[in-house]
Design a protein around this nucleic acid. Structure first.
Length: 809
DNA sequence: GCTTAGGGTTCG
């Protein structure tokens, strides 16, 4: 058992393997995989070495995070660490109180002493192969006589104080294989087949691997149990094979598993997870293995062996092509003995209408139908022959990768009836043909895999329930507005955090403490952003009436354009007010469809006298587009129409005022519209939206931003609103967000930095926030405690390379 | 017991 305490001669942290990322002690919980994580802290208490049985020991120690940001709390976060076996022995000898240690390869358990010591609800457990402690300490060297000479300590590899050596494996390069020998080897997968049933007793899987030698070697694995097979998900994955026999076949070397065979598979991407995929409980993985994987990853990268995109989303599926699909199974139904229907989705919309295969009633596993909006995103996959057997193992909800799926256009060859038999045309369904050519097959992806996390993000951004085509169209239009220009969020490494400006003198509390507090209080918390709504950020922009306190969505362009068009239909004669001087203005159209035409316009005589003709006009009969274009030349444009022979405003769902790119809306409940001459008394320098609204009897609606954020710390999660101080939080005005792209980008970038897409918890920066808790009526008669972020601002410090710690002040 | 497969698109 290779259990170790590493002594570092150089500075702290210098020799902790680079692929490990550090987790703040405050964030330790049980719902995370810590296999590639570290925790760092100073040993503030070191318990005695306790002998449990012969050759088994236990030692308890407390470490405290030294470099957590100041003012976070009166006390630095600390946690109990329990070490077992030889590691406990080594730790006892090699580590002193006051040393700074980095622990890796630990698991997390509930702390049984939390109620007593109030240290941390969880503790770290270090035992087994992977557990490791790195000690950084200034010289002199430790008192352990077995410790290697100082010269070695300053080398790239940490010196080790270990009583037991790892069983040593040697790995053959692929250009150095001798027929008949049994070897261990590493390789990058360039081709693979999922396990399939052989004619014999076993499942068979096929790999072709390569390494820096550039040899490409085929490899066949026979195992009765599926879980013993290589867990390869995509080309570029790295495998470590133990005990494979080298054989000659057709003039080339091949590898076949032999007695004692085992395999680990790794993500092949640089910076990917170091957690090996295996069903084996007793595998050994040390620093050298990790380095080998890193080296293969960078070689793979230099050779461009990894496919640029692992799989094709449904939105990019083209008729008659083969592709791999990552998706979620929603329902399945048998068609006949050699065909099964899988209904899947990936959150993207296929460019072609998806064909729905109708099956007999009561044979579907999972829901037999979905909302209209959802149905339009679901693809029918017909799997044949040998794949029917693997489909039997699948359950609705599973995340799948389907290899070598083929997009089939039209609907003529569908078993059973199909919804669009008469339509023919541009419909798609998908076939997984029989056989295993080109790696054809299905694989269930583990829920914690990076690809599934990404898939879920995409799916979560899809609106919950049926939305008709109209609103989806508008969503996609607005999405374009929000996402241009396409920025590369990956390139942005800026740490992002927040500062409070509330001035309260309150100590930060944990979320679980906060939840136990009475409402009506102010709290300070230190949290990360776990998720947020709405994902389509344009939906965060609302209109708010300060009089009736009602909130509404911003009407979309299609609706507004409709109101303009309706208003211009009305051609009944109109008596214009006496103060208004009528004229014509030339519209902006210049195409046959939109001819340039003159529009009826009305000016205030007073303004005319003051030679302020461009400051305010009343415009009649224009389209939305014409109004927008004219808005470039006039400071204030009020669209008007004729109603009952009088000039009046359009329906208040339309903006009552255009000021440059900004549009202003009025509250339908609280406005009492009369078109009057604005009281531009002398001395009024500028006609703005307030003056116009007042003149017209319009209760001006305010642009606001409203979001729901899910916050998280080590103890709990909490939903909070970001509303009243949303502008302060983002450093933009909601009015600007409504009108310009830069302000929209700023919000998008802020959210991306607080909650990177596909990012792990470790990548999310910490935020210091001020929260208020209050009772509010959520539904009729239902009071609930709500939380809102106050007086907190996101700060973006100059982009500095992070030291791996995620905490910023 | 000690084979099975040994990549290379489709019946639908």
């Amino acid at each position: 058992m290779p259990q170790r305490v590493m002594l570092e001669g150089a500075g702290p942290g210098a020799q902790v393997p680079a692929h490990l990322t550090r987790v703040p002690i405050s964030l330790i919980g049980t719902d995370t995989d810590y296999s590639d994580k570290t925790v760092k802290g100073k040993v503030v208490r070191k318990g005695p070495l306790v002998s449990l049985a012969s050759d088994n020991f236990i030692l308890k120690t407390v470490i405290e995070e030294e470099d957590s940001p100041p003012k976070a709390s009166s006390q630095n976060p600390s946690i109990n660490v329990v070490l077992f076996g030889a590691l406990a022995e080594d730790f006892s000898q090699a580590v002193n109180q006051g040393d700074v240690v980095v622990a890796s390869g630990f698991t997390v358990g509930r702390s049984p002493t939390f109620n007593k010591d109030k240290l941390h609800p969880f503790n770290l457990l270090l035992s087994g192969d992977d557990a490791c402690v790195y000690v950084s300490r200034p010289l002199p060297p430790p008192p352990d006589p077995r410790s290697p000479p100082a010269s070695k300590r300053s080398s790239a590899l940490p010196a080790e104080v270990s009583r037991t050596k790892a069983p040593k494996y040697t790995y053959s390069r692929l250009d150095d294989l001798k027929a008949g020998s049994v070897v261990n080897t590493y390789g990058v997968v360039v081709f693979f087949k999922q396990p399939f049933k052989s004619r014999g007793t076993d499942f068979c899987s096929t790999l072709k691997i390569t390494d820096q030698s550039n040899e490409k070697i085929g490899c066949t694995v026979f195992c009765e149990k599926l879980e013993d097979h290589p867990k390869v998900f995509q080309v570029g994955d790295i495998v470590r094979l133990h005990r494979v026999k080298v054989q000659f076949f057709n003039n080339s070397m091949t590898l076949v598993n032999t007695f004692g065979f085992s395999v680990l598979a790794f993500d092949g991407a640089e910076g990917g997870s170091m957690e090996p995929r295996t069903s084996s409980r007793s595998f050994h993985l040390d620093q050298e293995d990790r380095r080998t994987v890193e080296e293969l990853r960078s070689w793979t990268c230099s050779q461009a062996l990894l496919p640029p995109v692992p799989t094709t989303p449904l939105s990019a599926a083209q008729p008659k092509t083969y592709f791999d699909l990552t998706c979620q199974l929603l329902a399945k139904a048998p068609i006949d003995s050699s065909c099964t229907l899988l209904r899947v989705w990936d959150g993207t919309r296929c460019a072609h209408t998806l064909l729905k295969v109708i099956v007999e009633q009561n044979v579907t596993e999972g829901p037999s139908s979905f909302s209209k909006g959802r149905e339009s995103l679901i693809a029918s996959v017909l799997v044949y022959d040998n794949h029917v057997e693997s489909a039997k193992q699948l359950k609705p909800g599973d995340f799948l990768r389907i290899y070598n799926l083929r997009a089939i256009p039209g609907s003529s060859k569908v078993p059973g009836r199909s919804q669009s038999e008469e339509e023919g045309g541009d419909h798609l369904l998908f076939h997984l043909h029989g056989g295993t050519a080109y790696g054809r097959g299905i694989r269930v992806l583990p829920e914690n895999s990076q690809d599934v996390q990404e898939l879920k993000r995409v799916m979560e951004a899809v609106p919950e329930e049926a939305e008709d085509d109209f609103s989806e169209l508008n969503d996609s239009l607005l999405m374009e507005v929000w996402s241009t220009p396409p920025q590369s969020p990956a390139a942005e490494t800026t740490e992002c955090s927040t500062v409070r400006s509330c001035g309260h003198d309150t100590q930060p509390v944990t979320l679980s403490e906060l939840k136990r507090s009475d409402p009506g209080q102010v709290h300070h918390v230190r949290v990360q952003l776990r998720s947020y709504e709405p994902h389509r950020l344009h939906q965060a922009l609302k209109l708010y009436c300060s009089k009736c306190t009602k909130m509404q969505d911003v009407p979309d362009d299609e609706l507004v354009a409709g109101l303009f068009s309706e208003a211009s239909q009305d051609s009944e004669p109109c008596i214009f007010p006496r103060w208004a001087l009528s004229g014509r203005v030339l519209g902006s159209g210049n195409s046959p469809t939109f001819p340039r035409r003159s529009l009826s316009v009305h000016l205030s005589t007073q303004l005319l006298c003051e030679d302020k003709t461009r400051e305010l006009i009343f415009l009649m009969g224009s389209t939305l587009e014409e109004t927008c274009r004219l808005a470039a030349g006039y400071q204030n444009i009020v669209p008007v129409m004729s109603s009952g022979g009088h000039m009046t405003l359009l329906d208040l769902s339309a903006p009552f005022l255009f000021r440059g790119r900004k549009r202003y809306y009025g509250c339908k409940r609280c406005s009492e519209v009369t078109v009057r001459e604005p009281s531009c008394a002398e001395g009024v320098e500028l006609i703005d939206e307030k003056i116009v609204a007042e003149a017209l009897g319009v209760q001006l609606l305010q642009f606001v931003l409203l979001m729901k954020l899910e916050l998280q710390d080590a103890t709990d999660t909490l939903d909070v609103f970001l509303w009243r101080d949303a502008e302060l939080f983002f450093g933009v005005s909601a009015e600007d967000v409504a009108a310009n792209q830069e302000a929209q980008n700023r919000i998008r970038q802020t959210m991306d930095s607080l909650c990177p897409v596909g990012g792990s918890a470790g990548e999310r920066p910490w935020m210091d926030l001020c929260l208020t808790a209050y009772r509010a009526e959520v539904e009729a008669g239902q009071n609930q405690t709500c939380y809102q972020i106050f007086q907190s601002t996101v700060t973006k410090p100059a982009s500095t390379p992070s030291d791996g710690s995620t905490v910023t002040g």
